[in-house]
Amino acid sequence: MSKLALISRGIIKENPVFVLLLGMCPTLGTTTSAINGMGMGIATTFVLIMSNVAISSISGMIPNKVRIPSYIVVIASFVTILQLIMQAYTPGLYETLGLFIPLIVVNCIVLGRAEAFASKNGVIDSAVDGVGIGIGFTLSLTVLGAVRELLGSASIFGMKLINSDGMLVFVLAPGAFIALGYLLVIFNKLKSRTS
């Protein structure tokens, strides 16, 4: 598969949020605004690429029985590195994302890609796969965040569009499910039309 096809597969055909429905916890939890969703997406992309590269380069040496614990150790290390870096250089974003950063460790996409792709493919392909899935995840979270921010606080990327409070429910948890549901419908409708 060409590199470009690998990337576009991560964005459209195997979009982690709208097609695979993986990593729902951060998806629903952090997308109260477009910027938060984007921050979470970029953080996850970093971990995805790094862990995919690391795992694909060491997968030959890992015995099958300790495969999962080894992957988790690798992923957890990268998440902790990311957490320390964010705490030091982007304290604002670190505070908003809060608990969801350590939770990247248990994000199904990261372990899923390690198990399903990185362990069976080369280093470069795995890195490209990480980029593709990462972009797909980031875009989905940004769109979901933008929709919720627009409806819930009548602003986008922190800019107030009209002077109103918006519909509060979209900022709260139920709104996350409602917005995700409708976006799923729209995404899959468009996807089935193009393919």
């Binding site: 300790v66 614990p69 150790v73 690798v74 590195i81």
Partner: peptide, 19 residues
Amino acid sequence: MVATLSVITLVSSALLGGV
């Protein structure tokens, strides 16, 4: 098996200590 896991955890913790 044990050796592999030990090496992985050792490398990871060294890396984390550095960061």
